[in-house]
Amino acid sequence: MAVASRRRASREKSRPSVFWLLGAVVEPAVSLLAKIEISGQEHLPEEGPYILAPNHLSEFDPCVVAVAVWRLGRAPRFLTKESLFRIPVLGAALRATGMVPVARTASGASARETIRSAEELVAHGRGVVVYPEGSLTRDPDLWPMRGKTGAVRLALAGDLPIIPVAHWGVQEIMPRYGKPRLWPLRRPVRIVFGPPVDLSAYREGSTQPAVLMQATSVVMDRITDLLSQLRGIPAPAERWDPAVHGQKETGRLEP
Rank of each mutant, 00 (worst) to 15 (best):
S110L: 10
G108Q: 14
A68H: 09
T114P: 10
A92L: 11
A123W: 10
A96L: 10
T80K: 07
V65F: 00
A118I: 11
V89Y: 01
V102Q: 09
G91Q: 12
R86L: 06
T97V: 14
I87P: 01
L79G: 14
A109D: 15
R116C: 02
R116K: 10
R116V: 06
G98F: 03
P62K: 08
V65P: 00
L121G: 01
R71F: 04
T114E: 09
R86I: 02
A103T: 11
H124I: 03
P101K: 13
V89P: 01
R116Y: 07
V102L: 11
R112S: 01
R71M: 05
L84E: 08
S117Y: 05
S107D: 12
P62V: 04
R95K: 11
S107P: 11
R74T: 02
V89F: 06
A96H: 06
R95E: 07
G73K: 06
A118N: 11
L94A: 04
L121I: 02
A106K: 12
A111I: 08
L72T: 03
P76E: 12
T97K: 03
P76F: 14
R86Q: 09
L79S: 14
T97A: 05
P62G: 05
A96D: 04
R77D: 07
E82C: 03
A123L: 13
A106Y: 09
V65G: 01
A123G: 12
A123M: 08
A103C: 11
V122F: 07
T114I: 15
V100S: 12
V65Q: 00
R74V: 03
P62H: 08
F60R: 07
L79Q: 15
R71N: 07
V67C: 09
V122K: 11
V122N: 12
E82M: 02
I87N: 02
A66H: 04
R112E: 06
G125C: 04
A111P: 01
V89W: 02
R112D: 10
R77W: 08
C63S: 12
H124V: 00
A103E: 10
F78L: 09
V67H: 04
R116L: 01
A109T: 15
L94C: 06
R86P: 02
S83H: 09
F60L: 10
D61C: 05
V122D: 04
E82S: 15
F60V: 07
R104V: 06
E119W: 07
R74C: 00
S107A: 13
S83A: 13
W70I: 01
R71C: 04
V89I: 01
R74S: 03
L90D: 05
F78R: 13
A111L: 08
L90G: 03
G73Q: 06
L72V: 05
G98L: 05
S107K: 13
D61N: 10
A96Q: 05
G108F: 12
A75H: 09
R116M: 08
P88E: 00
L79T: 14
H124C: 03
I87T: 04
F78Y: 14
A93V: 10
G91C: 12
E59K: 10
